[in-house]
């Protein structure tokens, strides 16, 4: 077991983990942060996307020990204490960018990262930017709209 110190959604944790433990399993099983989900086992679907030190990562592709000393933000840490939604969360709701909602945590984290890097993306840039995240329900059209709407709010 290896000792790690990690801050997740504003809370500091000091935990023992197996060296093989993936970040997503640490989040879900040790911290109970089950808002972040596992959709595949080959890092294709992106459902487990979180922020690690200000960059989006697929948390199934990062070991928990690699997050040692780092700061993680999950879907559960986006809304303000009074429940105020992040602009991307709000845009997903307004634009019907989710149906079953399973890909949504990862998709929202991916869109936030995209907009950080490119505050005014074109439709093609949005589609390329989120191609690491799979959605089976929406056909992506409303996710693209939501990203465009959120870009408008942020810019």
């Amino acid at each position: 077991m290896t000792k790690i110190n990690v801050k997740v959604d504003g809370v500091s944790y000091a935990d023992e983990v197996e060296p093989r433990t993936l970040l997503v399993h640490y989040l879900r099983e040790q911290l109970g942060k089950v808002g972040t989900v596992v959709g595949c086992d080959t890092s294709n679907c992106g459902a487990c996307t979180v922020d690690l030190d200000g960059r989006s990562v697929k948390s199934c592709t990062v070991l928990a020990v690699q997050a040692d000393g780092g700061e993680v933000t999950t879907i559960e840490g986006l809304a303000g204490p009074d429940g105020e939604l992040d602009p991307v969360q709000q845009a997903f709701h307004e634009n019907h960018a989710l149906q079953c909602g399973f890909c949504t945590p990862g998709m929202i984290m991916a869109v936030r990262d995209l907009l950080r890097e490119n505050p005014n993306p074109s439709e093609d840039e949005i589609r390329e930017g989120i191609e690491g995240n799979l959605c089976r329900c929406t056909g992506y059209q409303n996710i693209v709209r939501a990203a465009q709407a959120a870009a408008g709010v942020k810019s």
Partner: peptide
């Protein structure tokens, strides 16, 4: 109408069976 379902899904307060 925007969906009633969305609130918990966009904030990660989900009850998937594996959760």
């Amino acid at each position: 109408r925007r969906r009633k379902e969305d609130a918990h899904l966009i904030t990660g307060r989900t009850r998937w069976t594996d959760n």
